[in-house]
Amino acid sequence: MTYKLISNGKTLKGETTTEAVDAATAEKVFKQYANDNGVDGEWTYDDATKTFTVTE
């Protein structure tokens, strides 16, 4: 399945996607992506749209 990340960081804003077997796997990928880009904030997940959002 395709999962989307919306980043509302102070230094990184935008969207990216990943293919993953489940939401937990996608979350690990996205949290590593955010960490690699210096984004640390509040996370939410919408199962209906398969979208994670991180806001700093």
Rank of each mutant, 00 (worst) to 15 (best):
M1L: 11
T2M: 11
T2Y: 07
Y3H: 03
K4E: 04
K4C: 08
L5D: 03
I6P: 01
S7P: 04
N8M: 12
G9L: 14
G9S: 12
G9M: 12
K10F: 12
T11Y: 14
K13M: 11
K13C: 15
K13T: 11
G14L: 15
T16C: 14
T16S: 10
T17R: 07
T17H: 09
T17I: 10
T17Q: 10
T18M: 11
T18E: 04
E19C: 14
E19M: 14
A20E: 04
A20R: 02
A20L: 02
A20C: 10
V21F: 12
V21Y: 11
D22F: 03
D22S: 07
A24E: 11
A26N: 01
A26D: 00
E27Y: 15
E27A: 10
K28I: 11
K28V: 10
K28Q: 11
K28S: 09
V29G: 03
V29L: 12
V29W: 14
V29P: 00
F30H: 01
F30D: 01
K31H: 08
K31E: 04
Q32S: 08
Q32A: 12
Q32G: 06
Y33C: 04
Y33H: 04
A34Q: 02
A34M: 10
A34F: 04
N35Q: 15
N35F: 15
D36S: 09
N37I: 11
N37Y: 11
N37K: 10
G38P: 01
G38W: 04
G38D: 07
V39P: 02
D40F: 15
D40A: 12
D40L: 13
D40I: 14
G41Y: 04
G41M: 03
G41W: 05
E42H: 12
E42S: 10
E42P: 03
W43C: 02
W43R: 00
T44K: 09
Y45D: 01
Y45S: 01
Y45H: 00
D47S: 13
D47I: 08
D47G: 08
D47H: 10
D47M: 07
A48M: 10
A48Y: 10
A48G: 07
T49H: 05
T49C: 04
T49K: 06
K50D: 01
K50L: 10
T51S: 04
T51L: 03
E56G: 06
E56I: 12
E56A: 08
